[in-house]
Nucleic acid binder design. Structure first.
Lengths: 114, 114
DNA sequence: CCATAAATTCGATATTATTCGAAATATGGG
DNA sequence: CCCATATTTCGAATAATATCGAATTTATGG
């Protein structure tokens, strides 16, 4: 990973709303969530949400797909993995660090409803 | 670690100059480097460097100490460790992740000269 | 003290990011 | 087609960040 990519990804995560969006999507695994559900969960006006979703997507941290008239966004675990790898190798002192494997939560669905 | 702290740290690293500064200091371990040496290494005007050093310091990623008339900055490995822990736990899918231990490079001095 | 060195603070400017209402675009069903 | 839904695009105001020369502060050695 290049430094420029890392900077883009770090900048994408370095915002309250976007970090919240990303964390929410991480919890929902590869299934992802439609934009509307995210807007509802985080109580954001649609145009603001789009702005942040695009920011994260351009940074390579989200994937987008359409299902009927919904646009579904999902966290890109590989990208997060790459970012953590970069930080470990370049900002963490010793080179080789035991691989951190980002992967969807056990239940790929919503967090266990108790 | 709180989300707000993570955001501050991510934002501090999400900049070309600051990431370069941090990486340089990571290579130099707890000894750190005086501001002047950093300015020279990265070819930055002093007032710009101060701006970025303060940004990183406020974010908790650097420590500052004085030696005679020099101000010496060093990477805070514990802070970086905490940040990676936050990202692993909150943005990486599964909770428990094998601890990533940030610690100074083998040679606490300049990177091994080949 | 004084001169010098090291770094910061000030200040003015330029650039980039964020917010979000209103209008536009796509999609699917009837 | 037409309507309703889901989301994006546009645009324009506001706010936050970055840059860096010049002046200032802090510390040292003679």
């Amino acid at each position: 990973m290049q430094a420029a990519q890392a900077i883009t990804a770090l900048g994408a995560l370095a915002h309250e709303t976007r970090l919240a969006v990303f964390r929410l999507l991480v919890q929902h695994g590869p299934e992802g969530l439609p934009a509307g559900a995210i807007a509802q969960a985080l109580d954001l006006p649609p145009s603001s949400l789009t702005f942040h979703l695009q920011h994260l997507t351009r940074a390579g941290l989200l994937t987008q797909r359409r299902a009927a008239r919904q646009l579904i966004y999902a966290a890109d675990f590989a990208a997060m993995n790459t970012l953590l790898g970069y930080l470990s190798e370049n900002c963490c002192g010793r080179g080789a660090v035991p691989a951190i494997a980002c992967s969807p939560p056990a239940s790929t669905e919503a967090p266990a409803p108790r």
